[in-house]
Design a protein around this nucleic acid. Structure first.
Lengths: 239, 239
DNA sequence: TTCGGGCATTGATCTGTGTCAAGTTGGCTT
DNA sequence: AAGCCAACTTGACACAGATCAATGCCCGAA
């Protein structure tokens, strides 16, 4: 098992506690008990330290991943170093499908991350005669595509203030799927990550947060924001 | 058959000439002869006049489409009318999958368009026990997702000149798949469409074309451009 | 052959966001 | 408890691309 920060210890523990909590959301969420047992035998449970890469763009793609715990940033780079974050992955998300034999983007852990890793060969053999699994993968791909299209609209046509507001709303809603509804939105990623996701600079993101706070729409708290006026806020994000 | 500009005439002609020419590229490209025959019985061949909608965002999505002939623009609108074109569909492309029961974007014909239309019910029944068909749909979704991610990088992090150059290069390469390699790149869409695809204004697109021509990278011709220095041009598009 | 109307180009000016340069804050290390 | 460092904020200024306003160019209709 080369280049893993933490070797694959304590799998049994993962299998019975952490892993199961996101299973209904994950790619394997609709497998029968027997199928799931077979599926688990293909999986390696891998833990990544903060900032550690899961995989990198242009690397030969031998594995796919189901994110179990933590948050990952997915991004592409231009030759001169400009970065675009194409998404943040949450528990339940499925990573690593690519239209070529190499990864089409890079992924790294934001905080500590745990994944289920599958080598492509065994994974493909497992799914190839399981229509319901293939349909689930289609659902996942279609949902991702929908998110990507929303993001194109945001990147191409929204102002900085609209970008930040829309980001906070959609992040709040995505978090709700895994952690339930909360009043304060936790932001595990830094300002630079938000900037690179929204096609802005870190300074503009910072100024925009401050502006939204001055306008009494949010309060900035450590590691997140509290939304004060959800009505007005959702309106700003939509328009 | 409500609201179709041209009723469904001459299906046999489509089946044996036009249709077949893109079949290897299309979703149905790997069906066995028997399967394909069954599949064709589910299809309506529909022709659309220039500018006519195939479907609109938020409409209940009862059908999916395989584009056979012509080019469609796919776009999303903000409430105040700002538009983002999320892609141009070419023959062989598969349209209409959405993460919700409604279309997540609008599509309309640029020139004259011909599609294979499938109602979702029969379509889903046809594919649900055909793993190779499901895998093909996965390939299509994954390819689209990859394109969407490239476009996010373009929208978020490239300059106007880089956007236009990257657009021309990728459009030239996509056209090559259906019409073969040519020296001049035909642009069936107008400047406003290009602007709305690249997150720019029509004036900036126009000025950028002129600038690329002054720099002797392209020549502007009716309905397209001729690329003079592919080497230098690809470099500009990549960086 | 002229007219009209869309589409594209070009010019002048404005502005939102980027860039550059200090500060500030808060959490860790020693 | 002091000192450090990374992450964030704030301010002053610059500039790429938007906006506003003509003008040009085709092509189809009469």
């Amino acid at each position: 098992m080369p280049h893993l920060a933490f070797p694959n210890t304590n799998c049994e523990e993962f299998r019975c506690s952490t892993h199961c909590s996101v299973r209904p959301l994950a790619i394997c969420g609709e497998l029968s008990p027997e199928e799931h047992q077979e599926f688990e035998r293909l999986a390696q449970h891998v833990r990544y330290a903060p900032k550690e890469p899961l995989f990198s763009e242009d690397e030969v793609s031998d594995s796919v991943f189901s994110l179990i715990e933590g948050i990952a940033r997915l991004y592409k780079l231009l030759p001169d170093g400009r970065r675009q974050i194409i998404g943040f992955a949450l528990p339940g998300d499925f990573l690593g499908m690519a239209p070529t034999p190499r990864y089409s983007f890079s992924a790294d852990a934001i905080g500590t991350v745990v994944t289920c890793r599958f080598f492509k060969g065994p994974f493909n053999r497992f799914i190839e005669n399981k229509p319901h699994m293939l349909m689930r993968m289609n659902e996942f791909a279609t949902r991702e595509l929908g998110q990507a299209q929303d993001q194109m609209l945001l990147l191409g046509r929204r102002s900085a203030e609209e970008k930040v507001a829309a980001f906070l709303v959609s992040w709040r809603d995505r978090l709700a799927r895994v952690e339930g509804v909360t009043k304060t939105v936790t932001l595990p990623m830094g300002r630079q990550d938000i900037a690179d996701f929204l096609g802005l600079t870190i300074e503009t993101v910072s100024r925009t947060f401050t502006k939204l706070e001055r306008e009494k729409l949010i309060v900035i708290v450590p590691d997140g924001v509290r939304v004060l006026d959800p009505k007005r806020f959702d309106a700003l994000a939509a328009a």
